[in-house]
C-alpha cells in the first residue's frame, strides 16, 4: 500500500454464513483509492459491488462475514475492529450515501435534527452549534433557504433535495472517504447530473476520496478517476477511466460499453451480453465470465485466468491477453509451463 492510499482492499473475501455452509460472494478482490480520488465500482446487479461497500462500512447483514483479506483505511485494518471502534469511524471518517433518498431518511424526524445527530455524536458540539453546522451543510449542498428547511420533514422535500440532504448528512463530519451506493439511480436524469456535479465539486473542496458504486457507465464517465469492473464477485478489469473507455480489454467490459445506446450510429438492435450471472453455487471453475463470453475456450471454463498488467496500472483478468492464448485457443488445455508464461504476460496496447 502506498502512503497516498486512503483505502486499500487486499484479497477480500466476503460471503454469507448459514448453519451448514458458507456461500462466498466476493472472491479475492483487490483495489485501492488514493486521497482525493474517485473510484467507480461497476457491474451488474448481484456482482457484489454493494456487498463490497457494506464490508468497508462494517455494515454487512447479520449472516454476512468477511472471511479473508484486509481493508486498510489510513493503514488500519478495519476488519479487525469491534463494533464500538467501528462506530467511531462510521459517519465520521467514512460516510455512506444510499440509493434510495426516499427511504433513507427517517420519516418522523426533521431533517435539521437528522443532520445534527451525527455532528453531535462525533464532534461533541452542542445542539445549537450542530444546528448551525447543519444549516451550513445544507447551504453547501445547494439547498435554498436552509434555515427554514431544517424544520421540515423528509416527505416535504423532493427526491433530489432529499439526496442533497443525505449528502449533507454524510459530509457533515468531513469524512476522508465517501461511499456512494448508486446515489443517482432513483433520480431524474436532470437531477442526476446536478448531484454528480455537486459530488465532484465537494470532492475537490473537501479533499476527500469517493467510492461510487454504479451500474451506469454514463455516471462513470462523469465522475471516475479509476474504474473497477466486477463480475460475479471478482474483479475483471481495473483501470483509469480514460483507458477503460478508449481501450476496454475484458470481453465483459467490452460488452458493457457496447450496450450503451449510441445516437450517432444507426443501430437496429442494441448489443447485449447474452445469458445471466451464474448463481454462487454454480460458478464455473475457471473464469466466471466463461459461460457468457464469446471467446471462451475449454481452458477458460477450467482454469482461473491470471492477472495481466499493462501500462498505468491497467489490469485485466483474462486468458485472451496471455502470451499463450493462441495455443490455449487451439488446444483448450493448459499445462504448468503455460501457467507461468501466462502469469508473466504483459498487456499490450493499453
Amino acid at each position: 500500500m502506498s502512503s497516498k492510499d486512503q483505502l486499500a482492499v487486499k484479497n477480500l473475501h466476503v460471503g454469507f454464513q448459514n448453519k451448514k455452509s458458507f456461500t462466498k460472494i466476493i472472491d479475492g478482490i483487490n483495489f485501492s483509492v488514493k486521497k482525493g480520488e474517485t473510484l467507480c465500482i461497476v457491474g451488474e446487479s448481484g456482482c457484489g459491488k454493494s456487498l463490497t461497500s457494506l464490508s468497508i462500512m462494517g455494515l454487512l447483514p447479520k449472516t454476512g462475514k468477511v472471511s479473508e483479506g484486509e481493508i486498510l483505511f489510513d493503514g488500519q485494518d478495519l476488519t479487525g475492529l469491534n463494533e464500538k471502534q467501528m462506530s467511531k469511524i462510521r459517519g465520521n471518517e467514512i460516510s455512506m450515501i444510499f440509493q434510495e433518498p426516499m427511504t433513507s431518511l427517517n420519516p418522523v424526524h426533521k431533517i435539521g435534527w437528522q443532520i445534527s445527530e451525527s455532528i453531535v455524536l462525533h464532534q461533541k458540539l452542542s445542539k445549537k452549534q450542530a444546528e448551525e453546522k447543519a444549516i451550513d451543510m445544507l447551504k453547501l449542498v445547494g439547498i435554498p433557504s436552509p434555515d427554514k428547511r431544517i424544520h421540515q420533514y423528509p416527505h416535504e422535500l423532493s427526491g433530489g433535495m432529499r439526496q442533497r440532504v443525505m449528502i449533507a448528512m454524510a459530509l457533515s463530519c468531513n469524512p476522508k472517504l465517501l461511499i456512494a451506493d448508486e446515489p443517482t439511480t432513483a433520480l431524474d436524469v436532470t437531477i442526476q447530473a446536478q448531484i454528480l456535479e455537486l459530488m465532484n465539486k465537494l470532492k475537490t473542496e473537501l479533499h476527500m476520496s469517493i467510492i461510487m458504486i454504479t451500474h451506469d457507465l454514463g455516471v462513470v464517465s462523469e465522475i471516475a478517476d479509476k474504474v473497477l469492473v466486477m463480475y460475479a464477485g471478482k474483479v475483471v478489469e481495473y483501470s483509469d477511466v480514460k483507458t477503460l473507455f478508449a481501450n476496454p480489454q475484458h470481453p465483459y467490459t467490452q460488452g458493457l460499453i457496447e450496450s450503451i445506446p449510441k445516437l450517432n450510429e444507426e443501430q437496429d438492435e442494441l448489443p447485449i451480453i447474452k445469458g445471466s450471472v451464474p448463481s454462487p453455487d454454480e460458478m464455473p471453475k475457471g473464469c466466471r465470465f466463461s459461460t457468457r463470453c464469446p471467446y471462451a475456450t475449454n481452458a477458460c471454463f477450467n482454469e482461473v485466468p491470471p492477472m495481466i498488467s499493462g501500462e498505468a496500472g491497467h489490469q485485466v483478468h483474462c486468458w485472451k491477453y496471455t502470451e499463450c492464448w493462441e495455443i490455449v485457443e487451439k488446444e483448450g488445455l493448459i499445462d504448468a509451463g503455460m501457467r507461468e508464461t501466462a502469469a508473466a504476460s504483459q498487456l499490450i496496447g493499453s
Binding site: 462506530s87 467511531k88 462510521r90 459517519g91 433513507s104 431518511l105 445527530e117 455524536l121 462525533h122 448528512m169
Partner: peptide
C-alpha cells in the same frame, strides 16, 4: 429492516 435504520448505523450510531 428499513433503510433509514441502515442510515442510522452508517452515521455511527450504536
Amino acid at each position: 429492516q428499513s433503510e433509514y435504520i441502515r442510515t442510522g448505523y452508517a452515521k455511527g450510531l450504536r
